[in-house]
Design a protein around this nucleic acid. Sequence first.
DNA 1: CTGAAAGCGCTTACAG
DNA 2: CTGAAAGCGCTTACAG
Lengths: 328, 328
Amino acid sequence: MPTIKEVAKMAEVSSATVSRFLNNSGYVGEEARKRILKVIEETGYVPSENAKSLRTKQTKVIGVILPKISTETSSRLVRGLDEVLAKEGYQILLANSGLSAEKEIEHLRLLKSRDVDGIILSATTNGAGLKAEIQRLDIPVVVVGQEVDDTPNVIFDEYQAAKDMVKHLIDHGHERIGFIGVSEEDPAVGVLRKKGYLQAMQERNLPIEESWIEKGIFDVESGAVAMERMMGAAIPPTAVFAVTDRLAIGAMNYVKSIGLRIPEDIAFAGIGASELSRYITPSLTTMDYQNKESGRVAAGLILEAIKSGGNSPEKRLINVRLLQGDSV
Amino acid sequence: MPTIKEVAKMAEVSSATVSRFLNNSGYVGEEARKRILKVIEETGYVPSENAKSLRTKQTKVIGVILPKISTETSSRLVRGLDEVLAKEGYQILLANSGLSAEKEIEHLRLLKSRDVDGIILSATTNGAGLKAEIQRLDIPVVVVGQEVDDTPNVIFDEYQAAKDMVKHLIDHGHERIGFIGVSEEDPAVGVLRKKGYLQAMQERNLPIEESWIEKGIFDVESGAVAMERMMGAAIPPTAVFAVTDRLAIGAMNYVKSIGLRIPEDIAFAGIGASELSRYITPSLTTMDYQNKESGRVAAGLILEAIKSGGNSPEKRLINVRLLQGDSV
DNA sequence: CTGAAAGCGCTTACAG
DNA sequence: CTGAAAGCGCTTACAG
């Protein structure tokens, strides 16, 4: 493939003129226009965005850092992002942090070195290191999923969502409610959702047993393991709130395997509105976080930040919706 | 953030020396080394990959074109790709074709204009236009999922997989077997899997009723609709093979809703090894296409092509595995 | 061991 | 309406 210079020579014009033609900037004579077009068609010339970026100082690419590249949550988020970004001519450069805080920072730098116009970070923590790095980077960054001060932010009311879900359980007559959480290194999922659970119980003057509180990692299997432990309690709970659908589903699988009926013997609720929650039997009561919508909003925020040239530390709260299944 | 020139000035060396330091190419004196390091640390300087690419003619990014950004298949593929690509210092530039053949070609060009080192295309068709465009592009491209001549290719034996699955059904005593397919514009899923079904039936001398052959799109809902139509047949089938898990699951949902038991009254099989297939009740018998592995293989192929500088038209067949569920 | 200079493929004032 | 020239931030022979 030729360069702009070669195209210019073949069309017997200067490369400046070809550039004008390409970008529709400035006048290009009818004759010149025709010759250029012809050469481009014949050669299949495509301008190098890379070289262009070097001059124009914008690459039209947005870096996206995901905690895990292949979760439902991530793919929905990316879909939302792509939906609005593609329309504006932006492409997505993907990076996988693998749930590691150091990798998040490493990728922030890597993306910066690629001269991306902005970065969307789906974060798993919100440590001081992260915040410092974002400041230092000096390009638009929007953080999704964790609250980070002084940074454009797309967040969910994790605390309220968890509290609402537990109250939903209580409203269905449950008093002994178990909890399956995750590591408290994750402020949003680990800390806030647990706090919501505790608060709901307390507000309704319900007892909390240590043995009803379990922890898993982000998969089905660990939900089952946690549930098995919980069923060893002196008085097992009649309902369980798990902080993710997968955890809830693992827990359900375990109680099914020991012959209990859901929801008659024990009820379950999760968070995430996973496709699984919908098609499992019984379907799982869960919270829809509208990840795709959060992607759209994040894309809007980054576009705004790029245009205005500054990180207005705007926080956008995504609405969550309770989806009633047959598990309660 | 400074440029290399500014770093050079601050460290009282030339930019050539800074470059040597950065890339570990050529000698850099101990003193100079120290001063440069200091400046870099103080300023947080990160070299521009973009400018670098312009000189070195490689960007270390691989374009990935996906039919749909948020399907399980796509995310597994990307995970496999990222696993090996990241290790080699490559990043992934994502593009979403939205199942449209024109968009596939458009993105091929778009990625080329970004000077990507190679492109992985998860294709939905294999038309002549696509092939021509790939030739024309003149950069390494590997196509996943559809067979395209003269191009590195990662494919599955769709025909055999479908045939094996239908035979599995037959081996379980079924003779009246229905089929839910997709549009035959998709050579792999639409044509080959159907052919496998027809061939299996024929080889075992089993009758095929027109009314047992239905078509859906790639979602659960259309599987249910197709199944409803199929149950209108004079003699309904005792087993159904659907070309995707989602189609199969939709179909299962429909027969459950009219009170039939699975697999006693009617059996089901799908393809895809989706997470859903595993956790649905009853679990679905399906084919594991090992998408993540196919991603790894595709990444290997593109790396090879980049190194060798040519598209050796190598075809790699990914093994598929039958996963027995309780739906048969 | 190090620097000056050219060049990668573009765009953009400036001049005509 | 169009071209010559400078410059974006790097790397890389070449010379010393």
